[in-house]
Amino acid sequence: MNQESKLEEEILASFEREEWRSVPNLTEEIARHASTTFASLATDKRVNIRVSSRDLEDVQGKAAEEGIPIRH
Rank of each mutant, 00 (worst) to 15 (best):
R46F: 07
E16N: 12
A31G: 05
R17G: 03
R46C: 04
E9S: 11
K45G: 01
W20N: 07
L26F: 13
S35E: 13
R21A: 11
L26G: 10
F38T: 08
W20E: 09
E28A: 08
E4Y: 15
L7R: 14
V23A: 10
K6T: 14
T27N: 07
E65P: 00
E16C: 04
I11R: 04
I49S: 00
G67M: 11
A63H: 01
E19G: 08
S35A: 01
A34G: 00
N25K: 11
E10G: 13
V47L: 06
A34W: 02
T36N: 14
E9M: 10
E18V: 06
A39W: 05
I11T: 06
E4M: 15
W20K: 00
H33P: 01
L12W: 09
V59K: 01
V51P: 05
E28C: 00
D55L: 08
E65Q: 11
E57K: 04
L26N: 10
R46M: 08
E65N: 12
I70P: 10
T37F: 04
V51L: 09
A64V: 15
R17M: 00
N25F: 07
E28N: 05
I30H: 03
P24V: 06
D44F: 01
E8F: 12
M1D: 15
W20Y: 07
L12D: 14
H33R: 15
E29H: 09
N25R: 09
E57P: 01
E57A: 13
I49W: 07
I30Q: 08
E28S: 09
Q60W: 01
G61I: 00
I68E: 05
R21F: 07
G61T: 12
D58E: 14
T27V: 08
V47I: 06
E8A: 15
R71G: 15
E66Q: 15
M1V: 15
E19L: 10
A63R: 01
E29T: 02
V59H: 05
W20V: 05
R46I: 04
F38E: 13
T36Y: 12
L41R: 13
G67K: 14
T27W: 06
G67Q: 09
R46D: 09
A31P: 00
E9A: 12
Q3S: 14
W20C: 02
T43R: 13
E18W: 02
R71T: 14
S40I: 07
A31W: 07
D58F: 03
R21G: 04
R50G: 01
I68R: 03
A34D: 03
S53W: 00
R54W: 03
E28M: 03
T43E: 13
E28W: 02
I70Q: 09
R32P: 01
T43N: 09
R21N: 07
E10Y: 15
K62A: 09
D58I: 06
